[in-house]
């Protein structure tokens, strides 16, 4: 919908879209700050959940439905529930901490400057994506099929290696949790 004010005209949908993306991005940053700055573990976990949901929404805004759903199911759904579970089991008490505001500001300033330096040395100018992009391919972006094809053709070996790593971790957890380590007793003759 084109809105024309005479001296200034803009596409309302496009402006709204950009505004929503910016708002979600800003909320994600604020939530990430909340995770670090909050003193109560429950609220920290909640901020992290909020951050994950914002990331999922960003994926959704850029048309990657599948990744958004997976982000919600895996990170916001399963991982964070375990975090809350552990906090509930251990009894999350609010920590009282002495907080030196000036020192914090100084450190964060130095950190920001260093990070920007590192970024400026490493990141070059933005480059366009090269390759064959016809209409069909663009329509498929973000769908489960496109991701599946990519994972099981180009990135097959890393994918399978990661699955083996996860399997090893799973077996390791069961061993640690299930079989308590007991010193071997010699049979007395």
């Amino acid at each position: 919908m084109l809105i024309d004010l005479g001296w200034f005209s803009f596409d309302l949908f496009k402006v709204t879209y950009d505004g929503v993306v910016l708002a979600i991005g800003g909320t994600a940053v604020l939530a990430a700050l909340g995770v670090v700055l909050c003193s109560s573990p429950i609220y920290s976990a909640l901020y992290l959940i909020g951050h994950m949901i914002c990331l999922a929404l960003l994926f959704l805004m850029y048309g990657a439905e599948f990744i958004a759903a997976v982000q919600l199911i895996v990170y916001a759904g399963a991982v964070m529930i375990l975090f809350l579970f552990i906090i509930a089991l251990l009894g999350g008490k609010k920590e009282s901490q002495s907080f030196d505001f000036h020192k914090f500001m100084a450190f964060s300033f130095i950190g920001t400057v260093l990070a920007e330096l590192a970024l400026s040395t490493r990141v070059g100018p933005t480059q366009p994506i090269t390759g064959i992009f016809d209409e069909k391919m663009i329509a498929n972006v973000g769908s489960a099929k496109a991701i599946g094809l990519e994972l099981f053709s180009k990135h097959l070996i890393p994918f399978e290696l990661a699955s083996i790593l996860l399997l090893v971790a799973g077996v390791g957890i069961i061993c640690l949790a299930k079989f308590a380590y007991k010193p071997v007793r010699r049979r007395s003759n």
Partner: peptide, 9 residues
């Protein structure tokens, strides 16, 4: 997937 994601929340 959407249903599972949201009901997981």
């Amino acid at each position: 997937l959407f249903v599972f994601a949201i009901s997981g929340m």
